[in-house]
């Protein structure tokens, strides 16, 4: 059984121009212990997907217009706020891009970790403290028992992200959602945090959904990849397949436009045009106006996500004929 099943999820927002779908017909699944990478540029809907799964979008203006999220056999989309509280923490936990804004500046980090545990488990103050120290130890904060009484501003960006991870893992979640967990960090710190996430997965066997705009982060961590563009999943495959045999022209473009660390390229292969805003998405295939392979038919209907090869799905009318031999 899959730990998480997302089926045909459409999340809409009420805006000044009427209701706009941030994501449309998003479907995917996640097994225990698996790392799923969701990659996309701004406005692709990757964060909205995560927040919908977590039930963290304010309703209104947001609304799950269609589809369902099934976690561990329970349908989260129809769950009450109170029941959802019990899923968050021991079931699904989340870490965000900016650890400084996610931590409360006026409470010590120990208080914040203990508060999280206390919300879900009845433990004595001493046991809470022990668990919090334990968690800080696990995420690699040196002399954890002393740092427990520190405030967020006394820590560096990398350490704050470690604290966020400690807090997220304090209730032993089955699924950790990491939304751009290293985007605000320097590259040497990013490497440390990605290593840590992988180590924790190996130790606790939790599943991780890692959301990023960085193909390098995907290459480093993901088992399976979902590529999103303008609110829709356009390709899904095991990680090696995505890099070796990308089938969607957008995925190919995304891989080509990144400069190399080892090779000289005289010129970068850029994707022309810009990302459409959610309220101004083109008809038909969302990528068609920027796609060098687009035919008139591409602008008429939206291509569905179809399995073209085993475990490799793509949403492109021309994927089959354009596929490399």
């Amino acid at each position: 059984m899959n730990l998480l099943e997302v089926r045909g999820l459409t999340t809409a927002f009420m805006t000044g121009r009427g209701e706009v779908n941030a994501i449309e017909e998003v479907s995917f699944s996640l097994k225990e212990g698996e790392i799923l990478g969701i990659v996309g540029e701004s406005g692709s809907g990757k964060s909205v997907t995560a927040l919908t799964v977590m039930g963290l979008l304010p309703q209104p203006p947001a609304r799950v217009a269609a589809g369902e999220v099934v976690f561990n056999g329970q349908n989260l989309t129809r769950m009450s706020d109170r029941d959802m509280q019990r899923i968050r923490g021991p079931g699904i936990s989340m870490i965000f891009q900016e650890p400084m804004t996610s931590l409360n500046p006026v409470f010590s980090i120990g208080d914040q970790i203990m508060e999280t545990i206390a919300a879900h488990e009845r433990l004595s103050q001493a046991d809470l403290r022990k668990r919090a120290i334990d968690m800080l130890d696990k995420v690699g904060i040196p002399s954890a028992s002393k740092r427990l009484d520190d405030y967020p501003h006394q820590m560096s960006g990398g350490q704050r992200q470690r604290v966020m991870i400690a807090m997220a893992l304090a209730c032993n979640p089955k699924l950790l959602i990491a939304d751009e967990p290293t985007t605000a960090l320097d590259v040497t710190i990013q490497a440390q945090i990605l290593d840590l996430l992988m180590d924790l997965r190996d130790e606790f066997g939790m599943a991780i959904m890692i959301i990023t705009h960085n193909m390098g982060v995907i290459a480093e961590t993901a088992d399976r990849v979902l590529v999103m563009y303008a609110g829709r999943v356009i390709e899904e495959a095991p990680v090696a397949q995505v890099f070796d045999r990308p089938l969607h022209p957008y995925t190919r473009g995304l891989l080509e436009c990144v400069p190399s660390l080892t090779e000289d390229k005289p010129r970068l292969v850029a994707i022309p045009g810009t990302l459409p805003e959610p309220a101004r998405r083109p008809p038909g295939c969302r990528f068609a106006p920027r796609c060098s392979h687009a035919l008139p038919a591409c602008s008429e209907a939206i291509p569905g996500l179809e399995l073209l090869e085993p475990a490799h799905a793509v949403a492109c009318f021309r994927a089959k004929e354009l596929a490399p031999a």
């Binding site: 590259v187 040497t188 490497a191 960085n214 390098g216 480093e220 090696a240 660390l261």
Partner: peptide, 12 residues
């Protein structure tokens, strides 16, 4: 520390 450009070159 720069992330790999292909999963086969994973640095961990």
């Amino acid at each position: 520390a720069v992330p790999a450009q292909h999963p086969a070159q994973r640095s961990r």
